[in-house]
Design a protein around this nucleic acid. Structure first.
Lengths: 195, 195
DNA sequence: AATTGCATGTAAATTGTTACATGATTTT
DNA sequence: AAAATCATGTAACAATTTACATGCAATT
């Protein structure tokens, strides 16, 4: 699970903090890289403290619990960054929909692709705001690298979505597909080798 | 959950199939878009059949259960593609590591970035193999769109990783960071405005 | 005084992974 | 005969989301 390393890392990066602050940090800086809700964060902090990777140090204003990272936590973070194989397994809901997009009218799929392009543009605007900074400290330099990655990937996605919308415009109308259309499928399959 | 729509979609796309075949399909065609193990697929098929979105039709050779999609399933799939807001929430473990990459030696981070670039190149090779097809049928045209998306995103990631590796080469050695270094952090923070 | 924001937690449900368990059929 | 592949399932665990529940502090 990357969440625990995200929490250790944020404590290392931004100093002692409460779970609430970490939850907000997940909504800001690292949100486009990883995200988590407080319902997951609070129990995980307790487990990390139990494991000695972070430490509950003091109490803030209104029952706030401040945590800080331990040396063991930083060592674990370094180990994770370099020595643990990166978990594979892409999950892209937009692409899954497009994969089945031949089932809807081309005009509808085109509209979907353009709406996705617009959504990506919105995200790109946010990231470009992040990139405007100066990046003087080591942690800011590292953050800048991830922002650049996001910008490049979003640009690739925007270009693709607009190209794909254009492609779809040339498609013939969708055939009626129903679960009872086994005969139709068999007909098409048989015809293919001849073409 | 997109898994259930992935299952309905594959049954719609490739005709009646067993859970085993669907599990293999998730390892092949849609793997770079979505993935699932049989431990999740079999129970989900039972639930989908219960909900009337797919139907258990016949029994194959050795206790194999063949499912086919129903009209209700296709209607649900169409609804999901167009009318359900795309779930947000990126999760990119590579970027999370790079975000905290200032904690390891620049040479180590550089090596990590180059190893990621190599991994991306491997995936790109697989996708380019998929793209070599002709794409005559509607479903093949749709699949081709997703393959193109994958190729563009992987190229963006390769370019980024190699650019970032180059950036990191110019970084000064990592400072020793430890949990006890609160004074060091405060010192750096106080110094910044003057610079 | 009421609203907003800070702050923590847990319970329940869902989603996903891993490991265990079983047996049939085909290939070597 | 043994090994590989086909085929299904469940149990246990891990990860994640959503909703519920509470209370303090600052602002309007």
């Amino acid at each position: 699970m990357s969440l625990r390393h995200g929490l250790i890392g944020l404590l290392a990066r931004e100093g002692p903090q409460t779970g609430y602050q970490l939850a907000r940090a997940f909504d800001r800086s690292v949100n486009f890289v990883w995200h988590a809700r407080h319902g997951q964060i609070y129990p995980e902090l307790a487990r990390l403290a139990e494991a000695g990777l972070i430490r509950h140090v003091e109490d803030g204003p209104r029952g706030a619990k401040v945590y800080e990272v331990t040396d063991a936590g930083i060592a674990e973070l370094r180990r994770w960054i370099l020595d643990v194989p990166v978990a594979v397994g892409t999950r892209n809901e937009t692409l899954l929909r497009v994969f089945f997009g031949y089932l809807v009218e081309p005009a509808e799929l085109e509209a979907f692709l353009l709406s996705e392009a617009a959504r990506y543009r919105g995200l790109l605007g946010v990231l470009e705001g992040f990139a405007a900074g100066d990046a003087t400290s080591p942690s800011e330099r590292a953050s800048e690298l991830t922002v650049h990655a996001g910008i490049r990937m979003l640009n690739a996605q925007i270009d693709w979505a607009e190209w794909a919308a254009n492609e779809v415009r040339t498609w013939p109308p969708a055939q009626a597909v129903s679960s009872g259309d086994r005969a139709g499928r068999a007909r098409r399959r048989a015809r293919r080798p001849r073409g």
